[in-house]
């Protein structure tokens, strides 16, 4: 009987450690569906998924970067710049593939500069990407003279369309979820990112080319930001040079709530999606029940604080356990 309860305890601990974020998500879904009958409807679920797709795609990029000890504070601005130029190219040529390609090229180029600043000039990623944040936003505003671009019918297919019954942005979300998961879990690149973020010195000692992997992480992030740029502008049916302000922080929030550790070396694609849904559902239920805007901000802030506290606590307890095992031996 004692063995049973111990093994039960152990398996509960395993579930708690591995799937705690999903338990939080499940709890939120149950509570929200009790609070508002509209919450659990198919159309509302599709609604929330569409709302979070842009920031979640950005969050995949942040997750890759944070895992290897980097960060991107420029993603919202680079999204705006790549989206604006993509819209402009679409207006000029009417070609969707060309518009899509331009967004990706611009965002990859900006991230190449980020990568160069970090790897070649040893700029702290926080500062390098902060500089890019200002430059990209400035470039978007300069190009448009601060004005929005309208009348882009035809471009909205990416952000407002459906593939079957699934909204197109959600299809992109699923594709990039799978790619991020695959990169992190099944490729040497993914393993290198964990190694670099876990202990950069050890990674160098074991023969990993740290700079090349960091640059690659930025370039992958560029592809994600470019796609997000197209989806964003297409969703709002306009070219907004001042759009997506602070989106990098929403992406970071999703990533951190999803268990990615700011100290590097820890993070999953699944956790990031769960983190994004927690934020998305929370915003959704607060709007469905018409909670005061100011209160919403307090709740969002509190959730971030709790997620980080939980992250630090669980790491400390893991460390304690490890140390305990060593002493026992």
């Amino acid at each position: 009987m004692k063995i049973n309860s111990t093994s039960l305890n152990q398996s509960w601990n395993t579930i708690k450690n591995r799937y705690s974020i999903l338990l939080v998500l499940l709890f939120l879904i149950v509570v929200s569906s009790l609070v508002n009958p509209n919450f659990l409807t198919g159309s509302n679920m599709s609604n929330v998924s569409r709302q979070i797709s842009v920031t979640t795609i950005l969050a995949f990029g942040e997750t890759l970067l944070i895992i290897c000890g980097l960060i991107d504070l420029s993603s919202g601005s680079v999204l705006a710049l790549s989206g604006i130029l993509s819209v402009a190219v679409f207006k000029a040529t009417g070609s969707l593939p060309l518009a899509f390609a331009v967004a990706i090229i611009v965002a990859v180029f900006c991230n190449f500069i980020n990568g160069l600043m970090v790897t070649k000039f040893k700029t702290p990623p926080f500062i390098a990407t902060l500089a890019m944040q200002a430059m990209a936003r400035g470039a978007a505003l300069l190009y448009t003279n601060g004005q929005n671009i309208y009348q882009i019918e035809g471009y909205t297919v990416f952000g407002q369309g459906f593939i079957g019954f699934i909204p197109t942005p959600v299809v992109f979300l699923l594709i990039f979820f799978f790619l991020t998961w695959y990169l992190l879990k099944h490729t040497r690149f993914g393993r290198s990112l964990f190694a670099i973020g876990g202990n950069e010195e050890a990674a160098i000692a074991s023969g990993i080319n740290v700079n090349r992997n960091k640059m690659a992480a930025f370039l992958v992030n560029g592809v994600l930001v470019g796609v997000a740029g197209v989806l964003f502008m297409s969703r709002v049916n306009a070219g907004l040079p001042n759009g997506a302000i602070n989106y990098e922080f929403q992406a970071l929030t999703a990533s951190i709530i999803g268990g990615t550790s700011f100290t590097g070396g820890i993070g999953t694609a699944g956790g990031t999606v769960a983190g994004a849904f927690i934020v998305g559902f929370l915003n959704n239920i607060m709007n469905l029940t018409n909670v005061n805007s100011y209160l919403q901000q307090i709740v969002r802030g509190a959730i971030i604080a709790l997620a980080v506290i939980y992250d630090i606590q669980s790491k400390t307890s893991k460390q304690k356990k490890k140390l305990g095992n060593i002493t026992e031996k």
């Binding site: 508002n36 509209n38 409807t41 159309s43 509302n44 609604n47 569409r50 709302q51 964003f232 969703r235 709002v236 306009a238 907004l240 759009g243 997506a244 915003n283 959704n284 709007n287 469905l288 029940t289 018409n290 805007s293």
Partner: peptide, 22 residues
């Protein structure tokens, strides 16, 4: 429904999506 959308089109879109559900 009454919320702040900070003059922004994208923020207003998300709010309206939720209000249409509710």
């Amino acid at each position: 429904g009454e919320q702040i959308a900070n003059w922004n089109k994208d923020e207003a879109m998300s709010l309206m999506e939720d209000w249409v559900q509710a």
